[in-house]
């Protein structure tokens, strides 16, 4: 299992007046090369679960092992180091920096890794070609179309050749065509051996044939119908 959660709970602001219990007792295993969809209404805890899988913070209690590392034992700094080797993130609205060029956006994860500019460009160009956006390399990311933007976001998640891709409601702001295109690309990535977890309540996502398993979350718990 590439992702293995057992008894995971997350409480925000624990012990304070604004304490929120976001996840309770989650058991989840995701095998390498599979594609899983986390489904559930808004506020159910999908993003929180992705954040734990994505090594952004450890669970409040329970065990989370991502690519054979126990998160609970890792201090913040090592979470970051582990994250950038392991996880590629695709955000809702894709979260590019609009004033940076497409090329600069895609290579952002490589800067703190000490990858030299030449090598960065080489790696980016490969991805740009793969997603047919080479002609946009020097454009400010704020000035490209929605479809191009989504491919930029995907390219950025792949730039360090991370084994796990996480996407948080990637189709929420896309039309049907682009949503289908997104899932097609995910399918291709799965075929190359990537492990993919998508949080979404969009039927175009969870009903997609490439999805191996759909996990429904309600009020922070896995819902078994």
């Amino acid at each position: 299992m590439l992702i293995e959660l057992s008894g995971v709970s997350k409480i925000y602001n624990q012990g304070r007046a604004n304490e929120v219990r976001a996840l309770t007792d989650i058991d989840l295993g995701v095998e390498q090369g599979s594609m899983v969809c986390l489904k559930g209404p808004s506020g159910s805890g999908k993003s929180t679960l992705l954040a734990i899988i994505g090594c952004i913070f450890p669970p409040t209690s329970g065990k989370a092992a991502i690519a054979e590392r126990q998160l609970a034992r890792l201090p913040d700094r090592f979470l970051t180091l582990h994250r950038r080797e392991t996880i590629g993130f695709i955000f809702q609205r894709f979260n590019v920096l609009p004033e940076l060029t497409v090329l600069e956006n895609i290579t952002l994860p490589l800067l703190p890794l000490g990858v030299a500019p030449k090598e960065r460009k080489l790696r980016a160009q490969e991805l740009l070609e793969r997603f047919s956006i080479s002609h946009r390399a020097q454009f400010p990311a704020g000035q490209i179309s929605g479809g191009e933007l989504q491919r930029v976001a995907i390219a950025r998640a792949l730039i360090n050749n991370q084994p796990i891709i996480l996407a948080d409601e990637p189709t929420a702001h896309l039309d049907t065509t682009l949503s289908r295109e997104f899932m097609e690309i995910m399918q291709q990535l799965k075929a190359t051996g990537k492990t993919i977890v998508i949080a979404s309540h969009d039927p175009l996502v969870f009903e997609h044939p490439a999805i191996d398993r759909t996990v429904t979350i309600k009020d922070g718990r896995i819902h078994v119908p």
């Binding site: 970051t80 994250r83 993130f89 955000f91 920096l97 952002l108 994860p109 800067l111 703190p112």
Partner: peptide, 11 residues
């Protein structure tokens, strides 16, 4: 964004 993409606070 930079933090999620693997930048450390010190970076």
């Amino acid at each position: 964004i930079l933090k999620v993409l693997g930048w450390e606070t010190s970076d």
